[in-house]
Simulated assay, not measured.
Amino acid sequence: MTTTARCIEHLTRNVPSVEAITLCGSHRQGTSDIYSDRDIWVFCANDEPISEQLATTAFLPAGADCEVLFEGRDDTLTDHTVINVLTDTEVLNLKILHTRVLTAFSAQDPTLDGQYLEDLENYTTMQVLHDPTGVIATHQGWLRHHAVDTIGDWLLPPLASRYASTYWRSVYQGVLRTEEHAWRHLATHLIELLAQLGFAQAGVLPPPRKWLLSPRILTALPDGAGLTALLDQLHCTSTTNPDAVLGFYRALAAVEDALLHTGELYAGMWWRGVFTERITHLAHHTGRPDLLALTQAAPRPRTAP
């Protein structure tokens, strides 16, 4: 029996306060590689006084080689603690937390906050290894009903609004102000938001940010390769070349057309109006006819069929 299996067996058989055990992280997602640790979350009874000392003495089988991760906490009662167990084949990352952490999270209203989205994806997709009373199954069922099955209602509208706002700001920084680093930062965020929109519109929670733009994750989207190509194009585009910057927005428009439906939410791709309306106004206001010529090659909002 491997050390990992021995640790899990010890937790299920010899630690009465353990209520459930789940597999999280890249091993659950199918994105693991030789550098990945195995993320195991151990849910304990709420009255169990969790501490690093308890975790290393009572939660591990005899002889397990472990390294405590320092996360700025002293050895006092906490909602969770994390330890690394060095096994014969891998690093076993044990996160030990109270079940009330999951209960409190489930009681939250869905939000666009990045940490909420990442936690929601983790909690709803974690693989159950031990759940004798069904506590994980109950919470996962509620979260799927409350937040996952309804992402079209609560996630898509604010995501689209944030995308539109970032789009306009990026055009100002890249086309009008030619702020190289500011534009590249905003454009990168724009690609991230577009990927999230693609997943959400497909009815799937966006993956964690560190995997969001991975080519092996993006293959699940209709034009995932287009998003990867956008990143490559962005990295070699300079704001000193206006035609190249507009070329990025034209390529972005093509990916938008492939990923986003033409329903009411995206009617006209209204954010493209920054070229056809706002910059046109600014060209007249500032006496810069060159802006008018520049925007002739810019993406246009869609017209009604």
Rank of each mutant, 00 (worst) to 15 (best):
M1D: 04
E9T: 15
E9R: 14
E9C: 06
L11M: 12
L11S: 07
T12C: 04
V15R: 15
V18I: 09
E19R: 02
R28Y: 02
G30A: 03
G30H: 03
T31M: 00
A45Y: 01
S51T: 15
Q53W: 09
L54E: 12
A58I: 11
L60V: 07
C66V: 06
V68H: 08
L69D: 11
G72V: 15
D74H: 07
D75G: 10
L77D: 10
T78M: 07
D79S: 03
T81Y: 05
N93M: 06
N93H: 05
A104V: 04
P110F: 09
L112G: 11
D113W: 06
D119C: 04
D119Q: 08
M126P: 01
M126V: 03
V128W: 03
V128Y: 06
I136Q: 01
A137V: 00
D149K: 09
D153E: 14
A164I: 06
V175D: 08
T178K: 13
A182N: 12
R184Q: 13
L193D: 09
Q196F: 00
G198C: 12
V204I: 15
P206M: 03
L212P: 02
L213V: 04
S214N: 07
I217C: 01
L221Q: 10
L227T: 07
T228E: 02
L231E: 08
L234H: 11
H235D: 06
N241D: 15
N241A: 15
G247L: 13
L252R: 14
A254R: 15
A254S: 11
A258P: 10
A267R: 15
M269L: 13
W271K: 11
R272V: 03
I279G: 10
I279M: 09
L282V: 10
T286S: 09
P289E: 11
L294A: 14
P299A: 04
T303G: 12
A304F: 01
